[in-house]
């Protein structure tokens, strides 16, 4: 009996750190620095996304049809390179693969473009063996840690998953009753979180799930028009509220955890933000679209 009690106590102790990891502290969102220009002083125009990893970021300077790479050293940001290509029109999403490739969703042609680490055009991504790729309209896409490719296809009404080589693996139908899905994110465990911008709701599907389930009730009281979602893989989801000019944190149970920032022009404030990237080492990068800048928070 005594041994059983000790075992239960030990199990609780073992589980506690896991619980803490599930509901970790959200970032404070203290402004660190804002990035406005390239090396020549040319300002950003309506940037919509940022891809980040420890040490560097790639910015989708949407209005200027280009990507910009910056290196991070502590709280300092240094310009590294600019990528332009005829295929880089109105880049609205940017992702990096484990191999260092940079993938971009061309907002004009609605095709996913692959670039090398140095910015050289490698070709358009095409999913093989799934729905007719020419009919697919990617609204957003993500690449996970294993380089699997996830595409939000609003024409087919499904989220498509492909292997790193582009072979179709599976699809999950988008929930039937919805307003408009603008974005999704895949966490380190393979769970997909999907955002319905119109109803301000999050739906989720675990790694093996065949369909999405509602994660949250409508968050309309806290979010006007969520446009983008990110995860810190520590129990928090971050959504940019485009029309509300803020970032909102939501727990994995769908509960509202708080808002970060406010609408405005001054540094630290956001004006129609879109893309958001969490570097994993305590930094958050926000594409502050209508302020024509990217802001770094921690």
């Amino acid at each position: 009996m005594r041994a059983t009690k000790i075992n239960i106590f030990a199990m609780i102790l073992l589980l506690c750190p896991a619980q803490a990891a599930l509901a970790g502290e959200a970032l404070v969102f203290k402004p660190v620095v804002s990035i406005y220009t390239d090396a020549d002083g040319k300002g950003f125009l309506a940037p919509e996304d940022v891809a980040c990893s420890a040490g560097s970021i790639v910015i989708a300077d949407t209005g200027n049809d280009r990507l910009l790479r910056y290196e991070l050293q502590g709280n300092e940001v240094r310009y590294a390179a600019q990528f332009t290509a005829p295929q880089l029109q109105s880049p609205i999403r940017v992702q990096r693969t484990a191999k260092g490739e940079v993938w971009v969703l061309n907002g004009k042609t609605r095709r996913i473009v692959r670039l090398s680490e140095a910015g050289q055009f490698l070709g358009n991504f095409e999913m093989k063996g799934g729905p007719d790729w020419a009919s697919v309209v990617p609204r957003s896409f993500r690449i996970d840690r294993e380089d699997k490719v996830y595409v939000l296809d609003i024409a087919g009404g499904a989220l498509l998953v492909a292997s790193p080589a582009g072979d179709f693996l599976r699809q999950i139908a988008l929930p039937a009753e919805f307003g408009s899905f603008a974005d999704f994110v895949v966490d380190s465990g393979g769970t997909i979180y999907l955002v319905d911008s119109v109803n301000a709701r999050i739906h989720s599907a675990s790694r093996e799930a065949q369909r999405f389930s509602p994660l949250s009730k409508s968050l309309k009281e806290q979010l006007r028009f969520p446009a983008y979602i990110a995860t810190d893989n520590g129990g928090n989801l971050y959504l940019t509220d485009q029309n509300g000019g803020k970032v909102v944190v939501v727990g994995l149970d769908g509960s509202f955890q708080g808002k970060k920032s406010d609408r405005g022009w001054k540094e630290g404030m956001l004006n129609y933000p879109v893309g958001l990237c969490l570097s994993g080492d305590g930094y958050a990068f926000v594409a502050d679209r209508n302020n024509n800048r990217v802001q770094v928070f921690r």
Partner: peptide, 13 residues
């Protein structure tokens, strides 16, 4: 479809 920004509902299902 040739503009830089297409209203998304046009190209959905």
């Amino acid at each position: 479809l040739l503009k830089r920004r297409t209203h998304w509902p046009i190209v959905d299902r």
